[in-house]
Design a protein around this nucleic acid. Structure first.
Lengths: 230, 230
DNA sequence: TCGGACTAAATTGTCAACAATCACGTAGGA
DNA sequence: TCCTACGTGATTGTTGACAATTTAGTCCGA
C-alpha cells in the first residue's frame, strides 16, 4: 500500500453519484496535495457541487474526516483543514519517531523477498546518485518511496493508518523543505544505515537508525517552520 | 486527563437536545464499558431514541465514530462496534508497545512536581500491597491509574488520543484477564522498574521497561484470547 | 425435508425545505 | 471619527418524508 496514492481511485464519470468512500479519498488526496490548505474552510455547498453528492452525504463525509483527523470542526462554523501549531508539530514529531522506528523494526524482522531486497537496493542507489549530483527533486521522490516501502513491508495495518494521518499535516512543510540540499548528505547517511540494518535483518539497529533519522528530521522541521512563521 | 472518564460529562436533563460531542462521548463510554459489545450493530433508530437526537445528527455522530475507529461501517448495513481479529490484536499490540514506551520516556524527561512524585509513589505502594495480598481488583484499579498518570504526565495530545483508541478494543479482554492473579507478581515487578526509572528521570530505562512490560502483556493477551476463542 | 421465490417489516440512503446562526457591511448618533 | 445597532446574505443545523436495500419469515413445489 502506498499512502501517496490514497485517492487514486478512478473517476466515476457516468453521472452516477460517487460513493462516499470515493469522495473521502479524493478530499484526503486534496488535503495531502495542499489543494486544500491548512486552515481553509470547506463549505458544504462547494463540496456538494465539487463532488456531485447531496448535502446530507457531504456532511457525513466531512464528519468522518473530522474523526480521522484530517479536518477540524467548529459548531455552527463547519469544518476546515486541520491546522498545525508549533506544539502540535512537536507532539506529532515525537509520536512519528517511534512509529516510523517500529516500522523499520517490523520490516527488519520479516524475511525479505528477493524482489523486496532489490527494490530497496535500487532506491538506495538512486538516493546515493541523487545525493552525489545534488538532485533534490529525485532525492525527495526516492525518499518517499523508501519510507513507503518500509511501511509496506512492515505489514501492520494499524501502523500504516496512524502514520498516514501523522504525515498529513507536515507533508507540505517537508515538501518545501526538501528542496534544501543542505541536509541531503546527512539524510542519505541515515538512509544508508537503515538500509544496511534492514538487509542484515537487524531489527534493533533498524529501529534505532530510523528513530535517529526521524528525530533529526523533526528538529530541522521545527527550525524551518520557525523561520517561516516566526 | 483520564481516559476512563471520557463520557463523564453531566446529563443535560432539560429536554434540550444533547450536544453532538456529548452523545459521542457517551457512546464511546458505552463501547469502552462493553455495554455495546464488539460486533454489535448500532441501529440508527435506537441511537435516536436512546440519546434524544434527530436521525441526521445520529448518522453524523456514528460516521464520526467510524472515523475515530470505534465503529465499523458497511454500506446499506449501518455501523457496528469494531471487532477484533487475532491479527488485529497483534498489530495493535505492537503499536501500543512503542506508544506506551514513548509515554514513559516523555514522562521521565519531564521534571515531576512534588505532587506527581507522591501520587506515583502512592499508586506503586498500593500495587505492592495488592500484589502481596493477591487482591486482583485493587491491583487492576491501581494499574489503570498508573498507566493513566504516565500518559497524563507525558503531556502529548497526539499520543493521548492515539493510545485511547488503541486501548478500546482490548480493554474488555484485559479486564476479564485482570482477575487472573497468576501474572500479578511479574506485572508488579515491571511496574516497580518503571516507577524507579520515572523517579530517577532515566528516560531510556523508563521507555525500555515500559516496552518490555507492554510486550509481555500483549503475549498474555493473545494467549488468553486464543484460549477464549480458539 | 430442502430450497427457491415471494412478501412484509425493518433499516439505511437520499433529498428538499425550513430554521438558526454567523459574517459583514451600512447607517445613524454621540 | 468611532461605535453601536441593525439588516442582509451566506452558511450551517434540523427535520420529515420518501426511496432503496436488506432482513426475516412464509409459502409452495420438487
Amino acid at each position: 500500500m502506498n499512502f501517496y496514492s490514497i485517492a487514486m481511485t478512478k473517476e466515476i464519470d457516468t453521472g452516477e453519484s460517487p460513493t462516499v468512500s470515493n469522495v473521502m479519498a479524493r478530499i484526503r488526496q486534496h488535503i495531502f496535495e495542499g489543494i486544500y490548505a491548512p486552515g481553509q474552510r470547506l463549505i458544504e455547498k462547494d463540496v456538494v457541487e465539487e463532488y456531485g453528492i447531496g448535502r446530507g452525504r457531504a456532511r457525513e463525509v466531512l464528519k468522518s474526516l473530522v474523526g480521522e483527523g484530517y479536518l477540524e470542526f467548529e459548531e455552527n462554523r463547519g469544518v476546515r483543514v486541520r491546522r498545525l501549531t508549533r506544539q502540535g508539530a512537536i507532539d506529532i514529531g515525537r509520536v512519528r519517531e517511534v512509529i516510523e522506528g517500529l516500522a523499520a523494526r517490523l520490516a527488519a524482522e520479516r524475511t525479505f523477498t528477493d524482489e523486496e531486497r532489490s527494490t530497496l537496493a535500487n532506491i538506495q542507489a538512486e538516493m546515493d546518485r541523487a545525493t552525489e549530483e545534488r538532485d533534490a527533486e529525485t532525492f525527495a521522490h526516492a525518499n518517499r518511496r523508501f519510507h513507503d516501502l518500509i511501511v509496506e513491508v512492515a505489514d501492520n495495518s494499524v501502523l500504516t493508518k496512524q502514520l498516514e494521518i501523522l504525515r498529513v499535516p507536515i507533508f507540505r512543510i517537508q515538501f518545501q523543505q526538501s528542496f534544501t540540499t543542505a541536509s541531503m548528505g546527512e539524510r542519505n547517511k541515515d538512509h544508508q544505515r537503515i538500509t544496511q540494518a534492514l538487509l542484515d535483518g537487524d531489527a534493533d539497529a533498524a529501529e534505532a537508525a530510523m528513530r535517529d533519522h526521524v528525530r533529526r528530521g523533526n528538529a530541522r522541521l521545527v527550525e524551518f517552520a520557525d523561520r517561516l512563521f516566526g
